[in-house]
């Protein structure tokens, strides 16, 4: 799929909370420290952070890079499975915090871990159709997990904001996209339930791998390109292993995915995951580089994108903190503080 008017990213911004919990620390509580862990550590939101606050910071970074005013935005959309309100948009809070005009489209998207890329695709359509010049598409999550569940090792917090605009102003053009969805309930959370359910190994082969591979192959076919035609690649990263495995299957190398592989350090930021990987890749890319991105959301679907970096990236990159700056300020907490902050203590 391509919009009739060429589009691209004119700004981008990432946000990762300062706090981390080591996977080993979680294992200490539940497995006496034995057994493999899926990541080294995961990011943990501070007690005053949520999807809204992380979205605001990521979006401010994106605006700073783009060098446009918030009033120029035509839409602010937030993809998340952890909106602080079940009913009441995160988008309006973020919009007011950015200082947009009230004459915009704003709202929330939900598609498990690909809610943010849903917003990105919709943003491409909105800018590509000429309905708006600039759209802020955000993926952000403070992911929930049942204490002791496999997900507790990875379900983390972070946000990425992509500012979509006309291709001639872009720091990276978005050359094409495809979306692939099927009704595959590998992971879900029923209304009113605090923690999600998942199908264990069912989340792998029939869900994550089939869906990502379908979308990725289709986009490569549509473009008539091969993995080696791309400088970098980013895949949704629920843990450290899956994105590396799917990259290998598709024919991408470890070097291609290295800059955007954040999950070993910060876990799975859900709606922020693939988009943060893209942001981290843009942090190191050069003009002319090409980036292949495929998100994944349980339930299930993938959005795949092919981007080409432009000269504009060089002067805009340093206008906001790089992903590395957020990764570097890590402060590790123990399970007790983690339990207190993420609401796992019964406060009465």
């Amino acid at each position: 799929m391509k919009p009739s008017r060429p589009v691209g990213l004119i700004g981008y911004g990432v946000y990762v909370p300062r706090y981390r919990i080591a996977a080993k620390e979680i294992a200490r509580i539940w497995t006496d420290g034995h057994g493999p862990v899926p990541v080294e550590a995961k990011s943990v939101p501070g007690p005053d952070e949520d999807t809204v606050t992380m979205s605001i910071e990521a979006a401010r970074n994106a605006l700073a890079r783009a060098g446009i005013r918030a009033e120029q935005l035509g839409a602010v959309w937030i993809g998340s499975e952890s909106h602080p309100y079940s009913v009441k948009p995160s988008g309006t809070i973020v919009s007011e915090a950015l200082g947009t005009s009230p004459w915009i489209s704003s709202g929330d998207w939900e598609f498990a871990c690909k809610a943010g890329s849903e917003a990105l695709t919709a943003g491409m359509a909105m800018v590509g159709s000429g309905m708006a010049d600039y759209v802020m598409a955000i993926g952000a999550d403070t992911a929930q997990s049942r204490p002791g569940d496999a997900l507790e090792y990875t379900a983390s917090a972070g946000a990425a904001a992509l500012l979509v605009g006309p291709a001639d102003q872009a720091l990276a053009t978005i050359d094409a996209t495809v979306s692939f969805v099927t009704d595959t309930p590998d992971f879900f959370r029923r209304a009113e339930r605090p923690y999600p359910s998942h199908g264990n190994r069912f989340t792998g082969e029939p869900a994550y791998f089939r869906t990502i591979q379908s979308a990725a192959k289709r986009l490569l076919d549509d473009l008539g390109r091969t993995p080696s035609d791309f400088t970098y690649a980013v895949f949704h990263q629920p843990n450290a292993k899956f994105p590396q495995a799917v990259a290998k299957r598709l024919g991408f190398s470890d070097a291609q995915i290295a800059p955007g592989l954040l999950s070993p350090q910060i876990g799975n930021t859900y709606s922020g995951a693939a988009l943060s990987g893209l942001c981290a890749t843009l942090d190191v890319a050069k003009p002319g580089d090409t980036i292949f991105v495929t998100s994944y959301g349980s339930g299930a679907g993938s959005d795949a994108y092919a981007l080409t970096v432009t000269e504009a990236l060089l002067e805009r990159r340093e206008r906001a903190p790089l992903a590395a700056a957020y990764l570097a300020r890590s402060v590790f907490i123990d399970y007790a503080v983690y339990a207190k902050w993420v609401g796992k203590l019964v406060m009465g």
Binding site: G46, D48, E49, V52, T53, I56, A97
Partner: peptide
């Protein structure tokens, strides 16, 4: 400056940012 939660007015109340 960052924008954060200032206070949670309760499960049936608003979050104050």
């Amino acid at each position: 400056m960052v924008t954060r939660q200032l206070v949670d007015t309760g499960a049936d109340g608003v979050l104050v940012y």
